[in-house]
Write a protein that binds this DNA or RNA. Structure first.
Length: 790
DNA sequence: GTGTAATGCTATTGG
DNA sequence: AGCATTACAC
């Protein structure tokens, strides 16, 4: 560790001021790549060096992995063991811990289950069936998001049902029973001793609102609060933070309004825009210098985001060299796009010595990953998909976890439904529904009915009743061992005794073998956990400190399994892989080379986001996030046709490409100003003269150190200068070279119109056309396929 | 109650 | 195209 605060020398002026301003409310507006994580880390380290007890610091991050990494970085600066006591994690993991600690106040058991979205959806469907509501009108996902929004705005089921405006809206939209469904849903969750994701935040609010002793306790516990990615917090999270910070007002939020991309799940950009109103004495710091990307990428990003209206004023700039232009690739189909990307990665690896891990392929929707995967496989390029079907979402894993959940909390109805007849033990759907119905009628959990089945007058055969009894006995016998066996021993016992392991073992199909292996992998994880490995989410826990060698139980293991995503997982064997992920999942990450694919209207921007300005602006921020992930090279691509919903769809290039500063782009068309080459297109890679100017002005950043290849020796410069992707086949637009103001043109979709302005030089020129039917449009003539009429 | 075949629906984005 | 739900035969 460095001496006497000299670690602050790693920071620029603004960063250092932001770190040292420890008292009172602070807002740090951090542009993309401006060293935000560094500031947060150093700020925490600085607090600790100043003598603040690490127990009094709470840092809320966007992923558990980010928390883990930040903790590790703090530890490296301050040394010793103190960093272990920092409270760092996502809102959900931190407050689920607090809810377990304070469960009595809410009337929940300590071992409540956390329902994931699948559980919630399944419960909603069950309720819809019971209420005989048509799933086509009450679409489960829609119902779910409606309830979710209500909770995130701290609206309870009763206030929902007492709000005339909402009732009127629901009635007008033909769904007057939504409030009823919400009410029943909450009741069923409670009966199952379960909370969904939103409840974790909602109930934290209830806890802090209704129990002033608890509020005061945590206000004094967390004297210093830091919130990362503040632009993506919702109202419920906002109120929690506001409550906790009310006593000491040492609240530091870090965010970038330009990177707010979670409005769809309730994130409220106003939280950051209004922060100044909540805390008039606020100190604001703007981190505007970008250390991550080339000047070209920074300029391109700026040129896009300025199309948004609602923004905090700031200017992101960089001292980094211009670097290469952003390549734009056009593909005939989604498969060809995959091929171009794979080929592009292959070439860059050859030419710059980059590794697989230096590449990311980013897309708007998970469905796009397939074409990319296939192409990468064909090129033997190793990759890893983030998001999509994560480990914990696989059927076999969910099955075994359902057994664990049931053993821990037998009232957990979703788990019960999942495993009561898997492996099959002769308790079929009819019997199950009789049980559930009886439970609802008597206002108890389904498990209670099963436990006391003879007390209920049920029309179920004696054979089946005995089977139910056997099942109850089996689960109970495991529950009795929760505190006696460690997580692995009990977990293994459950997997065996339930017959699940055998069931999977007997399936010798390749898929079956893989399922069996997955369960084994989970059990291995249990073993490591039982033997003392850090859990995936590690938060300080006073209880644990008292008896350090306490048994590591299954209950502990399961406490926040539902909160894990595969972004939180560390990779094991093969670390050198291309990363494939959605843009959302890429937030906060950076890669030397980024391929951003699927730049097509109705895909990106999404077809669902074209109805309103705020939605389109969110898409644009998403594009901004994608562009700013790249350090050195950015490739944009789009396909002319794409398979969607099983059929071939024609695509049009995304408006976002036209919004970019065209000087930053390279359309792959040979264009040499001085020594003119022939004009015709070529399908072969072409040597280009320059690109990477090594600049010396920028030092002290990792820019100089992580450059692909070794250093800037001549060989490498030459190699870099050779980087060139196969130029995409372009629409023959040579006849548009002489397009002039006043001409009449025809467009496939927009019809006829008159050219009223021309911008830029051919072939990157932009024409503004006033279409007779569709009004004024600005078109890149390269893509617009305009025909000159007169 | 169980297993298989046909049907129909869907897929932003995610903790 | 893939998956979940439903229909129907055992």
């Amino acid at each position: 560790m460095k001496q006497g605060g000299s670690f602050l020398d790693d920071l620029n002026d603004v960063q250092r001021k932001a770190v040292q301003c420890t008292e009172g409310p602070v807002m740090i507006v951090a542009g993309a790549g401006s060293g935000k994580t560094r500031v947060l880390t150093y700020r925490i380290a600085y607090l600790m060096k100043k003598g603040v007890d690490s127990f009094n610091i709470l840092a809320l991050t966007f992923t558990n992995k980010a928390a883990k990494e930040m903790k590790e970085r703090v530890r490296r600066i301050v040394g010793g063991n103190e960093a272990k006591n920092l409270w760092m994690g996502t809102f959900h993991s931190v407050f689920s811990r607090i809810l377990r600690a304070e469960h009595i106040k809410l009337g929940y058991p300590q071992n409540f289950t956390i329902y994931d979205t699948d559980d919630s959806r399944s419960l909603i469907k069950e309720i819809l069936r019971e209420q005989q509501l048509d799933e086509k009108i009450y679409k489960p996902n829609m119902v779910l998001s409606r309830i979710s929004h209500a909770k995130n705005n701290l609206m309870s089921a009763s206030s929902y049902n007492n709000n005339p405006q909402i009732l009127e809206d629901d009635t007008l939209s033909g769904k007057p029973k939504l409030g009823l469904v919400y009410r029943i849903y909450q009741k069923r969750l409670f009966k199952s001793a379960a909370m969904d994701f939103d409840d974790l935040l909602y109930n934290t609010n209830v806890l802090l609102r209704d129990h002033s002793d608890i509020l005061v306790k945590y206000q004094h516990r967390f004297k210093y609060i830091l919130v990362d990615e503040y632009q993506d917090t919702n109202f419920s999270q906002y109120v929690i933070v506001k409550q906790l910070a009310a006593a000491f007002r040492n609240i530091c939020v870090v965010g970038d309004d330009a990177q707010s991309i979670y409005a769809f799940r309730g994130a409220n950009i106003q939280n950051i825009l209004n922060f100044e109103k909540d805390y008039p004495e606020i100190s604001t710091f703007k981190l505007e210098q970008n250390y991550r990307s080339t000047n070209t990428i920074v300029n391109a990003a700026n040129s896009v985001i300025k199309n948004n209206t609602e923004q905090l004023p700031k200017t992101v700039w960089t001292k980094n060299p211009a670097g290469e232009k952003i390549k734009v690739m056009k593909a005939v189909s989604d498969n060809e796009e995959g091929h171009l990307v794979a080929k592009g990665i292959f070439d860059l690896k050859m030419n710059t010595g980059a590794f697989n891990k230096d590449f990311a392929v980013l897309y708007r929707t998970n469905a796009q990953s397939r074409a990319m995967e296939e192409a990468l496989r064909k090129h033997s390029i190793s990759y890893k998909i983030y998001g999509g079907l994560s480990f914990y979402h696989r059927k076999e894993i969910k099955d075994i976890l359902a057994y664990f959940r049931l053993v821990i909390n037998a009232n957990d109805e979703e788990s019960l439904k999942r495993v009561i007849n898997y492996p099959t033990r002769g308790i079929g759907e009819t019997s199950l529904h009789k049980l559930i119905l009886a439970a609802t009628d008597h206002d108890v959990s389904t498990w209670t009915v099963m436990e006391n089945i003879s007390d209920f007058n049920l029309d179920i055969s004696t054979v089946t009743k005995n089977r139910i009894g056997d099942f109850v006995t089996m689960i109970k016998s495991h529950s009795n061992k929760l505190m006696k066996l460690n997580a692995y021993d009990l977990g293994h016992e459950i997997a065996t005794a339930s017959g699940l392991l055998k069931e999977l073992y007997n399936d010798k199909t390749p898929e079956g073998v893989s399922r069996f292996e997955n369960v084994q992998e989970l059990l291995n994880g249990l073993k490591e956990f039982s033997e003392g490995a850090d859990p995936a989410i590690s938060l300080p826990d006073e209880e644990k400190k008292e008896n350090a060698k306490k048994l590591r139980t299954l209950e502990e293991y399961m406490a926040d399994i539902a909160l894990l995503t595969d972004a939180d997982e560390d990779d094991e064997d093969d670390l050198d892989r291309v990363s494939l992920m959605t843009i959302h999942a890429s937030k906060g990450l950076e890669f030397p080379n980024v391929f951003l694919v699927g730049l097509e209207e109705n895909l990106f921007p999404s077809q669902y986001a074209l109805t309103s300005r705020p939605e389109l602006e969110e898409e644009r921020r998403l594009f901004y996030v994608a562009v700013t992930r790249a350090e050195y090279r950015l490739n944009l691509s789009f396909a002319e046709t794409r398979y969607r919903w099983g059929s071939l769809v024609q695509c049009e290039v995304s408006r976002f490409i036209a919004e970019l500063d065209q000087d930053c782009l390279d359309y792959g068309v040979k264009r040499k100003k001085k020594d003119k080459l022939n004009e015709e297109e070529s399908d072969y890679p072409v040597k280009r003269e320059k690109t990477f100017r090594a600049s010396s002005s920028n030092s002290g950043t990792k820019y100089a150190t992580t450059k692909p290849g070794r250093s800037t020796d001549k060989k490498n410069l030459l190699k870099m200068s050779m980087v060139q992707l196969t130029p995409p086949k372009t629409f023959d637009n040579s006849h548009l070279k002489d397009l002039q103001i006043g001409m009449t043109v025809e467009h496939e979709r927009f019809g006829k119109g008159e050219v009223i302005a021309m911008d830029g030089k051919y072939p990157n020129s932009k024409a503004t056309v006033n279409f007779v039917l569709n009004g004024q449009k600005s078109l890149l003539i390269k893509f617009a396929r305009l025909k000159i009429v007169s």
